[in-house]
Design a protein around this nucleic acid. Structure first.
Lengths: 151, 151
DNA sequence: CTGACTGCAAATAGTTTGCATGACG
DNA sequence: CGTCATGCAAACTATTTGCAGTCAG
């Protein structure tokens, strides 16, 4: 499960951020979607329900949420910057369908051996990693879905 | 080692692309650098030696080279699109220093177990993966290097 | 009340496109 | 020579910034 609204409100407040209807709306959209969303897509959806909200606010909200670690970026090749709800305390990765853009999460990667070896060999202090698999999802393999805007 | 100039020329020719001084210059810059380079950075360097070359040409050349698989993209968080010389036939990954932007390659990741399990569980047809570790390189740990433009 | 937040418009950055000229093969 | 490549300017898209009014705490 993702964070609850209350939990999120509390995190925001503790960090000195205010809780505004706009921020609630953006978070709500992101948490309802299981796909990754571009800022523009988020704006569109939020705008349907709150027509007075501006794209700029969406960008600013995304910055704040990303800084707090409540959402995270997905890099899906080419242009990037899509956002996805962050599951609390879970280290996780993505499986991205190159046809329809669907994103699946998985959490259990065991990269620690590789990480340790690399650290030893390269003298890097390794802080994190990004692991994404790309391919075609179940439905696209069957040719069931039509393509979404790839981006 | 990377591709030789001859090898590259032959690949271009076989695919119906012409070999122009501009393309040579761009390739040369990329192959000389061990860092990843943004299109703008490549342009700057190329421009020093060939002042008449345009940024547009750099973009177009990068497209061609990427399509041929001679160079590859690096996603280093935030804005992306940096390019790096591709080592021939090597499946490889990056270790990126978040302080100075240095990129190290490594080739031996064993993700096949994970990949098979994911394919089984999610019914994805997995085509490829992107694996990047981030951290601080040897020199930055020691505080030796000053930061480059992070970008 | 007051500082943080919002929305608008305008500025910027990055990338792509149209078109006439030039050069590889 | 014909075709593809180049260079310029202009068009676009995505994102950021400045500023005055507004609102959460």
């Amino acid at each position: 499960m993702t964070f609850t609204q209350n939990k999120i409100a509390s995190i925001l407040r503790h960090r000195g951020y205010k809780i505004t209807p706009q921020r609630r709306a953006v978070l709500n959209i992101i948490s309802l979607s299981h796909d990754h969303l571009t800022p523009a897509a988020i704006y569109e959806k939020v705008h349907e329900e709150h027509p007075r909200i501006g794209l700029v606010t969406v960008y600013r909200t995304l910055d704040v949420l990303a800084e707090l670690g409540l959402i995270c970026e997905v890099h899906a090749g080419g242009s990037c910057r899509s956002y996805l709800m962050r599951r609390p305390a879970e280290h996780h990765h993505h499986l991205i369908c190159s046809d329809c853009g669907a994103v699946l999460d998985f959490t259990d990667c065991d990269l620690s051996n590789l990480e340790q070896r690399l650290a030893r060999e390269t003298h890097f202090e390794i802080k994190g990693h990004l692991l994404e698999f790309t391919g075609r999802c179940r439905d696209c393999k069957k040719g069931m879905k039509q393509k979404k805007a790839a981006r």
